[in-house]
Amino acid sequence: MAAGHVSGVGRRSGAVADFLRSQPLGAFGLAFILVMAFAAIFADHIVRYDPEAIDFASMLAPPSLEHPFGTDVFGRDIFTRIVYGARTALTIGFLSAFLGTTIGGLIGIVSAYFGGRVDLVVQRFVDIVLSFPIIVLALVVVAVVGKTPVWGIDLNLVLAIAIPIIPRSCRVMRAAAMSVRSMPYIDAARAGGYSSLWIVLRHFVPNVLAPYLILFTAYVAQAILLEASLSFLGLGVTEPKPAWGLMLAGDNSNFYQEAPWMILFPGLAISLSVFAFNLFGDSLRDWLDPKFRT
């Protein structure tokens, strides 16, 4: 297989060790992501309180041993809500980034593979969709589709976050696929009479895996930020579910000047997790493709 510039992906053994050694910052980001994932999965065993339990006796309590991050206007433990918020952020972040990057990537590859008129039409359409700022497009989708909760996750929110990612991922993946298109083995496969589907799956997909992974990581960060923004506006995750953006909004936002811990910790949670994904994504790019190193 012509691995070419996708150094790293093909080498299975020692790849992780090599990444950790050559990208200490990326390793740090990865560690933070793993801690977050751990918190999200084992939330029930980490915290003492129910994230949705209202306790008016301990309203707006400052940080203490009982409530390390204090409590909010409903007396809910903020640490507990942040731990459960990791679950919300990661689930929605991963789902929507995966959906957006994959759909966009497939459209990009198909567009590059067929070229000509198909490519032209797809790219003009992408141009048009790119004219809408990310959050504006997401808000329009939210306004139009309403809510479809499945297992506590609003699928339409995932869709609203994924749609603005599609054209952006399509652009980058198309560019990556274009460089594969001119490879001699593609001509060989075509001459060999293989079907388009087979060529795309066998030759394009493995060779654009590196940019795909880089994009995916970057879009998880974007998706977490976007989910936080939408929830903050009251148009994403809604009360009483724990979500970081939501913890900065609504009744909490009316009292944050008296109880700053209420907004300090959820905001830190958003910033640090987005930071970690960006750090990891950047290092992944440097490691997978030293050519792009800046």
């Binding site: 960060a221 930020l225 936080a228 923004s229 903050f232 953006g245 900065l248 936002s253 944050y256 000047q257 700053p260 907004i263 905001g267 958003i270 910033s271 640090l272 987005v274 930071f275 960006n278 750090l279 950047d282």
Partner: peptide
């Protein structure tokens, strides 16, 4: 600059208001 990409502007705004206050 990396935190610039990570910090949500609305949270930064709230912190700014807190600081100014």
């Amino acid at each position: 600059t990396m935190s610039g990409l990570a910090v949500p502007s609305f949270w930064l705004g709230m912190l700014t208001i807190l600081g100014l206050l």
